[in-house]
Amino acid sequence: MNITITPRAAHRLQTISETDSNPELALRVSVESGGCHGFQYLMSLINAKDIDPAEDTVFENEEVARKTGDYKAKIVMDEPSLELLKGSSIDYTMELIGSQFKVTGIPGAKSSCGCGTSFDIA
């Protein structure tokens, strides 16, 4: 099961980490029932020490960052969320209404809402 971290998302996470003087910063992505399309994803910043190795999967782009000089980032997901989002990407978008981390390219999604945080599974 794989989740891709875009360079833009990795850069933003590293910037936040440096601003907060917290090298252990990670982005937790979880999915719950709700939203206008059945499921919605939620994101929060956490400290890596709060990751539960029995429940969570951590995705890091450290190897890619080392080879390409890109920014390092950690994404954390629990198993049920990972099942719904596997194969997708975590991106950071900057739009007129604001900027946000966003899940893109969810393989099993058949539709999503206008704001992009709610989706249906085929």
Rank of each mutant, 00 (worst) to 15 (best):
G38P: 12
R66L: 10
S44R: 13
E79Y: 09
I75A: 00
D52R: 08
T68S: 12
L82Y: 03
I75P: 01
G38Y: 14
P80I: 06
V76N: 01
D78L: 09
E55K: 13
E79K: 11
E62R: 04
P80L: 09
L45I: 11
D70E: 07
L85W: 07
Q40M: 15
E60G: 14
V58I: 14
G38Q: 14
L42I: 14
A73H: 07
D70L: 01
I75D: 00
L45F: 13
A54Q: 15
E79M: 11
I75H: 02
P53I: 05
K67E: 08
T57V: 15
S81N: 08
F39Q: 12
L84D: 09
E83R: 15
A73L: 10
D70S: 06
D52F: 09
E60V: 06
Y71S: 11
G38K: 12
L82M: 05
D70P: 03
E63K: 14
F39L: 12
D56K: 02
E60K: 14
A48G: 08
P53R: 06
Y71W: 07
D50P: 10
L84T: 13
E83A: 14
L85D: 05
P80E: 05
L42S: 09
Q40W: 12
L85S: 02
K72D: 03
E62D: 14
E60I: 03
E62C: 05
V76C: 03
V76D: 02
R66P: 00
L42N: 14
E63Y: 07
V76S: 01
L85F: 04
V58L: 09
L42A: 06
E83T: 13
T68A: 04
E63W: 10
D50Q: 12
E60H: 12
L45D: 03
D78S: 11
E60D: 11
L82T: 00
E83F: 13
V58T: 10
I75G: 00
P53E: 11
L42Y: 12
N61K: 00
R66F: 07
